[in-house]
Simulated scan of single mutants.
Amino acid sequence: MELPKFLMGDNTDHKDDIFVIHTEYPRFIINLVDDEIEWLEVFKEADEDILAGEVARLIEDASAFYDREMERYQEE
């Protein structure tokens, strides 16, 4: 099975939260309400330095994905 790069997540226990799941390395779940990230990877110290520069881009990509999906829902 080939997964899309991003998925939207929903949970009725967290009605006000907006979750986006990034399925490629580095895998994570972000709550777009507060930009809190839960990493689904275990990183080595060397990886953390590389990721520091990637985090801002990954948040922007997740936000752009969400905005695109919401536009598509509104069009239907």
Rank of each mutant, 00 (worst) to 15 (best):
G9V: 09
L7P: 06
E45A: 11
F6P: 00
Y66M: 08
H22Q: 15
Y73W: 09
E48C: 06
R72E: 10
S63K: 10
L32H: 01
I29K: 07
K44C: 06
L7Y: 01
L58Y: 00
H14W: 09
A56H: 10
D16H: 05
I50E: 14
N31E: 10
G53Q: 09
D34M: 08
D10G: 12
D34E: 15
D35I: 00
A64M: 05
E60P: 04
E36N: 15
D49S: 11
L32P: 02
D16A: 15
M8A: 07
K15C: 12
F43Q: 10
R68C: 05
I50Q: 07
D47R: 04
M70K: 11
F65K: 00
M1R: 13
I50L: 11
G9C: 07
D10S: 14
A52I: 12
K44N: 13
D67S: 01
E75C: 04
H14R: 08
V55D: 03
F43T: 15
V20Q: 00
E24S: 08
D34T: 03
P26W: 10
E69R: 04
L3N: 07
K44L: 08
Y25L: 08
V20R: 02
D61R: 01
E41R: 06
A64C: 04
F19W: 13
R27L: 11
D10T: 12
E60N: 03
G9Y: 04
W39S: 11
T12Q: 15
F28W: 11
F6Y: 10
E48P: 04
E38F: 00
T23R: 15
E2M: 13
E38P: 06
Y66H: 05
I21F: 14
L58E: 05
P4C: 09
A52Q: 14
W39Y: 11
A52R: 13
S63G: 12
